[in-house]
């Protein structure tokens, strides 16, 4: 069997959906964060597959930048979660409920 562009795209879409499901169903802030990372990396897979398909380096360069952005988001995100833990001694997002309209 030849692995074609579509195989990569289906895998990428599948991983992305797992990430979305994780964000929507889990309650632990760090697991949610990991799920978001999974979504971003699933997209990176699409980018690389398309870059190969077009024979264009643009998509691969995009992946470098999106990796950097994801890393920056993690750095900031974990710091915010640490502060959350200091306030509440928990990182369950159901307990983050001071403001509800």
């Amino acid at each position: 069997m030849i692995i074609s562009l579509n195989h990569y795209l289906v895998l990428s879409a599948f991983l992305f959906c797992i990430g979305v499901a994780g964000v929507l169903t889990r309650k632990n802030a760090i697991i949610i964060f990991a799920s978001i990372e999974l979504m971003l990396n699933a997209v990176n897979l699409s980018f690389i597959a398309f870059a190969r398909h077009w024979g264009d380096a643009g998509g691969q360069i995009f992946v470098f930048f999106s990796l950097v952005v994801a890393a920056a988001e993690v750095a900031v995100g974990l710091a915010i979660i640490v502060v959350l833990f200091r306030h509440k001694e928990t990182i369950n997002i159901d307990d983050v409920n001071l403001m509800r309209w």
Partner: peptide, 27 residues
């Protein structure tokens, strides 16, 4: 802190969708 956590989690979540959109347009 709560404000920034909500902003961060939702913002990063929607960044995923935005990035996927860009990937498909690129494709």
């Amino acid at each position: 802190n709560e404000s920034s956590l909500k902003y961060l989690l939702l913002g990063a979540f929607f960044t995923g969708f935005l990035l996927y959109g860009i990937a498909l347009i690129y494709g």
